[in-house]
Design a protein around this nucleic acid. Structure first.
Lengths: 339, 339
DNA sequence: CAGCCCCTGGAAAACTCTTTCCGTGCGATT
DNA sequence: AATCGCACGGAAAGAGTTTTCCAGGGGCTG
């Protein structure tokens, strides 16, 4: 079923049919328009998006790049992105990097080839990315050049709109709350050393401790993968090395989940023997027991906002940055200490 | 950067460049091929998938239809699908239905318009869908007609390849295990009455109870949404009504999660006051405490298998059905009863 | 009432590939 | 040595839209 056939059936030209059916600025007389719509309806015409993309040089595709769609952090944000994109009648293309940095640029190139109208890129920058032009940055620029628009979640410093949690302040607030609870000795699951998000949370946490005259023993900081298993593994190492911390801060909830499992497997109780706090407040993990004290981020909303930025009409050459504040959610995984 | 320019740069015809760069059966002389590849490399040529799709009448898109990508059940399967599709160099289009049945067909139509090469459809059929041709069935046939290929996960009876868990037997196995533990009075969170997957699990569970000479009191079966909140809500109702069951079976893990929260909020302990069992063994939920007894399904593998079926060369007009057996995973949420 | 402009319809070019069809040149076969 | 056939390069015809450009008609303005 092609537009040509619809036009013929309605007794108008191809051009007219196109103008009626696929939003053009040009006016078409009432009567004709009605005839075209009726014919399209009757024949069950469905526009060929492929041909449209070729002719318009822009497709109805919205890219969505995540590290791992099975990770609830990413899938929550993804839900927000798809909601907005689908409401606009656009189609979401899901690309996963498997945490391989290089793949972000590769996927961006693929999306550029597809003439994607917008791309939402989720994930953290790595330390060192600041220096000079990156392959990813170039790909983004190329896509923008071509008329596309890009929004990043949690990735600052790229030539694109950005939605970024206030990692530093969130972690600082959390630290102050934990100090208020009476905690004095902390251990930290710091995630991968090169990840900016992890580093910022760490810095914020440290900052608040320092301000309170506290410190973290070098042995009480453990680096590891930004995953549940990374958290488990890191915690095992921490506990094997021995620690007298009363509270363990994992820089994200997913790692905190692994941490809780490791702590239990070691025979310790949470929070009696060791308090645990996380970051993100992932919806799927709110049912852990004891409930995980965390810094709540509105993940779905962040996805929506990023999609709106990418699809909206903010000029791409003047990137907008939206900073999202976290909110402390105190649950049973942390407990007041008496000194 | 178009193929034309590459051809010019290499001093060959457009046709030759096309044959060299985009897999054709036709042979091109070594020397020419080398020149074309070199030119493409030098100019940074990236094929325009949009034009290719138009010319070939099939795109490199693979559809993936889920109810809710934030639900860990779907995101696990999605991870499997994307892994396979990306390994083939294809691009995944994510469509979400928000549990609106009608949208499955709509999304399928969109994917057909995009000339998707394959579609993986995840979700459960509804009771009553058996009768006669459905809009979804028609859309699937149309897509197949057009050269596409469809695989369903958990949806039987459609004109497409199918990967389906053995819901009936899994639930029956679970029931037998629970009976072995000494449970005699059960309550069931049955999910939405019209969902086949839920019904099959219910049937299997009942069957095993009946075989053991047991029964479930009508008041101990509660229907509700197939979500975490549905489970919470249903359990609240169950407990408010009063029950003397020693074990609660939720027909999926997500509902079981809500159930555990509701049980706790009512002041009861798990498993001391009430045992809880689920179905699916969702990876993200394996860290619940107490660990949830469940029926393990290899979700990611199911996604991979569905993608392989859809992308493989099994003729679409002779659908293949793969049945996946579950495996009982006994954890601390269920405990032996003494009589 | 003449001249202009605007409004609208249609023809045709453009978008970038794939693939068919044709023609040339070379090797092999008898 | 002549013919047949095969291998390979190129021209050109699509694939289904959008959009530009042109032309005709009607309404305004002066």
């Amino acid at each position: 079923m092609t537009l040509e056939q619809v036009a013929q059936h309605a007794g108008v030209s191809l051009a007219t049919a196109s103008r009626v059916l696929n939003g053009s600025t040009r006016q078409v007389r009432r009567e004709l328009a009605r005839r075209v719509t009726a014919s399209a309806e009757e024949l069950g015409y469905l526009a060929n998006p492929t041909a449209q993309a070729l002719a318009r040089n822009v497709s109805s595709l919205v890219g969505l790049i995540v590290h791992d769609i099975a990770d609830p952090y990413f899938s929550s944000i993804a839900a927000g992105v798809t909601r907005v994109a689908e409401a606009e009648g656009l189609v979401v293309v899901l690309g996963t990097t498997g945490r391989v940095a290089e793949r972000e640029a590769t996927l961006m190139a693929t999306l550029r080839a597809h003439r994607a109208r917008a791309v939402v890129l989720i994930g953290s920058r790595r330390v060192g990315d600041e220096s000079g032009p990156s392959r990813l940055g170039d790909e983004i620029s190329a896509l923008v050049e071509q008329g596309g628009s890009v929004a990043c979640v949690s990735q600052e410093g790229l030539p694109a709109h950005t939605v970024v949690p206030n990692n530093h302040d969130g972690a600082a607030m959390l630290a102050r709350r934990l100090i208020d609870q009476g905690h004095r000795r902390f251990a930290v699951l710091a995630g991968p050393p090169e990840l900016c998000a992890a580093r910022d949370r760490l810095d914020g946490f440290y900052g608040a401790l320092t301000a309170a005259g506290l410190d973290v023993a070098p042995g009480d900081v453990v680096h590891g993968a930004f995953t549940r298993d990374g958290g488990y593994e890191s915690t095992r190492r921490l506990l094997a090395g021995g620690t007298d911390a009363s509270c363990l801060f994992a820089v994200n909830d997913v790692m905190a989940t692994g941490a809780m499992a490791a702590i239990r497997d070691t025979g310790l109780r949470i929070p009696d023997d060791l308090s645990v706090a996380g970051f993100d407040d992932i919806p799927t993990l709110r049912d852990l027991t004891p409930g995980l004290t965390s810094v709540r981020l509105p993940l779905e909303w962040m996805g929506e906002e990023a999609a709106r930025l990418a699809l909206g009409d903010s000029p791409a050459d003047q990137p907008v940055t939206v900073t999202v504040d976290g909110e402390i959610v105190e649950r049973e995984s942390t407990t007041p200490q008496r000194s």
